[in-house]
Design a protein around this nucleic acid. Structure first.
Lengths: 152, 152
DNA sequence: TATAGAATTGACGTAAACGTAAAAGGCGCG
DNA sequence: CGCGCCTTTTACGTTTACGTCAATTCTATA
């Protein structure tokens, strides 16, 4: 209704003209960051994003993009959305954010430990599985070639 | 009612005397394999175990123990219970079980691939997280020691 | 103006493997 | 005889991060 206010004729669907406001709607936002619309709404519902509104239409700003990047990074390294939110909620543009950084570091150390444990578990599983596979292969070999058999 | 039929006086609660039947109830079974009662009932509900009954009381045999071991091994290497069931359902004591072994091998190969992918993802995450942590540490260091600052 | 393409909210569904009551029945012991 | 412990069945709850409709409204374009 007012998003694209004056002299808008371009072929491209979303281009805020007025200032360098750089607002995008949910579709473009989703495409740009490889997530679904559902995901963006879900993150908003969980308090991780807070896009502006033009009526009922969500408009994402630079700030939302930065936050989304953080969310995606967090999820990549295995943080839960709760963790991410907790860390982001501490952000204060007027301060040094020492508390935020400390919390992030603390959570990161724990997460790193978890990741290392997980890696160890996976290595165990891989070894165990490889061993079983060898055994199964031997059994199959015996069944398909029953000529040579028992004692060494 | 009939589990412990004749001349049973021992202090120990569960001891099948008659033959070498070696039946145990759910409590002992759970303790022996480090699972909960709920888990054993759940596995039964999913068709993975089939203990005998004395009235309504479950009695687990050698066979159930073997199956449970397989289940636990399967879960350790990351198979779903469905996968485990699928493989175990192919077991036929009268045949060579070639089909079972082939299925197991096939599933194992896929699972191995998944595990390796997971390990790669975790390694990525560890690297990414370590990098972020270094950055955060640097930021914290600057804040706590603002004397020396900009250029190298 | 008709129509296709976005966007909205709401709400139920999914996957996995159990956890956790709740209510009740049996059993040996002192 | 009553207590405590074991066991049973039934069934709803948990966790996480969305997926998948459904019904509706807006918007841009031909």
């Amino acid at each position: 209704m007012k998003l694209i206010s004056a002299g808008e004729t371009a072929a491209n669907t979303n281009m805020s003209v007025e200032a360098g406001e750089d607002l995008v709607r949910i579709g473009e936002m989703a495409k740009k960051y490889g997530v679904t619309l559902r995901t963006l709404r879900f993150y908003e519902d969980k308090g991780l994003l807070n896009p502006r509104r033009d009526g009922s239409t969500r408009l994402y700003t630079r700030r939302d993009k930065a936050r989304l990047k953080l969310i995606l990074l967090g999820r990549k390294v295995g943080f839960s959305l709760r963790d991410v939110k907790q860390m982001m909620d501490l952000y204060d543009p007027t301060g040094s954010n020492t508390k935020q950084l400390r919390l992030a570091l603390d959570k990161s150390e724990k997460q790193l430990a978890r990741l290392q444990k997980q890696r160890a578990l996976i290595d165990d599983a891989i070894n165990e599985l490889s061993g079983s596979m060898s055994a199964v292969r031997r059994m199959l070999a015996e069944r398909s070639a029953p000529q040579a058999s028992a004692a060494s």
